[in-house]
């Protein structure tokens, strides 16, 4: 069972929810794209349901709501410090299945990796509900079906925007009363069954093959192609790496704040150590690190799915037109080559 209502009625119906929640959703920012006269779609706090971009995939992912690009952890004055405050209101987050699944991967890293849970992440996540946005299969960079992230049941409300009206389905009884006077209709969310893009990622059977794969020459292509800008990891809904930065107010170094800021394994200096030494000096090495982390190491460690939901944002945002799917196909070929050689030997 579901409900339907017109665009004009949307904000009236959501008004109680707007009072109680901060609503975040993908929103179009005209002409803020990388190239002139192109738009950008990113997550923002919205004040009207009609502001939401329902049909075009956002350039940046929903992770920015739980894990902002810049986040103040605490403020310090001399020897004292005060933790930054948590958001005052709970959050209602509009997201497609890929992004909802990605938040679960974020949670693995922030909450289950190591011995403590990251309070800054957890305090938002525990106070957040999802509105599942209908997805028609995305664009030609989407491959969620291949990554098993086309489905989710982690949602309170499901919504689909039609030409003049919205269809709604409610799972969380908290919201039932807001819509009880709406026209009823048959609506329950449907999930994408097929994307135009697909990939089948080969397992790396053992450490020996892994080590040979690391040395395989196919990675070298990225020394020439990748410019190490980090656009892929910033837009990736599953990447969690950050660095910390102390901001010093004015000329008094005793007063300031500690922030965490996104870091990217693709940007030079990511792995620079105290002695200035860097482990991965070349774009090809950084690419290899990213790919193996996402499509081997993470799964190996957590015994779960890969660290990718197939949203295709890294493909979409790459200014040098590098496709992760093509990279994975090349990696598959390299694995085959290594295995065949082993048999021949």
């Amino acid at each position: 069972m579901g409900y339907k209502f017109n665009f004009a009625d949307a904000d009236r119906l959501f008004c109680n929810i707007f009072d109680k929640y901060d609503i975040y959703a993908p929103k179009k920012f005209p002409k803020q794209g990388r190239y002139s006269d192109t738009d950008i779609i990113k997550y923002a706090k919205i004040n009207s349901i009609n502001e939401i971009e329902f049909h075009i995939k956002s350039d940046y992912s929903a992770k920015e709501v739980l894990n902002p690009i810049n986040e103040t952890l605490f403020y310090f004055i001399e020897n004292e410090f005060r933790e930054s405050s948590a958001p005052k209101k709970p959050i209602l987050l509009f997201a497609r299945p890929c992004d909802i699944n990605a938040i679960e991967i974020q949670s693995k890293i922030f909450e289950e990796n190591g011995e403590f849970s990251d309070i800054y992440f957890t305090r938002i996540k525990n106070n957040l509900k999802f509105v599942l946005m209908d997805c028609n299969g995305g664009d030609d960079t989407c491959f969620c079906v291949s990554m098993n992230s086309n489905f989710t049941d982690n949602w309170a409300i499901a919504i689909k925007q039609l030409e003049n009206e919205y269809l709604l389905s409610i799972k969380d009884s908290e919201f039932t009363s807001d819509f009880e006077n709406c026209e009823q209709t048959d609506f329950s969310p449907e999930f994408v069954q097929q994307n135009t893009l697909s990939v089948n990622i080969k397992e790396i059977p053992n450490k020996e093959v892994l080590n040979k794969l690391k040395e395989h020459p196919f990675w070298l292509e990225y020394d020439k192609r990748c410019i190490s800008c980090g656009s892929c990891t910033v837009s990736c809904p599953t990447c969690t790496c950050f660095t910390t930065r102390d901001i010093i107010y004015s000329e008094n170094p005793k007063v300031g704040e500690r922030k965490r800021v996104y870091a990217s394994c693709q940007i030079e200096g990511f792995d620079q150590m105290a002695g200035q030494k860097e482990i991965r000096n070349k774009a090809s090495e950084r690419m290899r690190y990213k790919v193996l982390h996402k499509y081997h190491d993470y799964k190996e460690r957590f015994k779960t799915k890969h660290m990718c939901v197939g949203c295709g944002r890294c493909i979409h945002r790459c200014p040098e037109a590098i496709s992760i799917v093509s990279t994975l196909e090349k990696m598959n070929n390299a694995i085959d080559e290594i295995l065949n050689k082993d048999i021949q030997e």
Partner: peptide
């Protein structure tokens, strides 16, 4: 110290190369 970019707006030629280079859309064109 601030983790921020500073700009000498006076001599900016308005080319937009900063926008093109930015991985996070921290620079945008008006």
């Amino acid at each position: 110290n601030l983790g921020r970019i500073e700009k000498d707006a006076c001599c900016c030629v308005g080319c937009g190369e900063c926008v093109r280079a930015c991985p996070t859309s921290a620079w945008t064109r008006q």
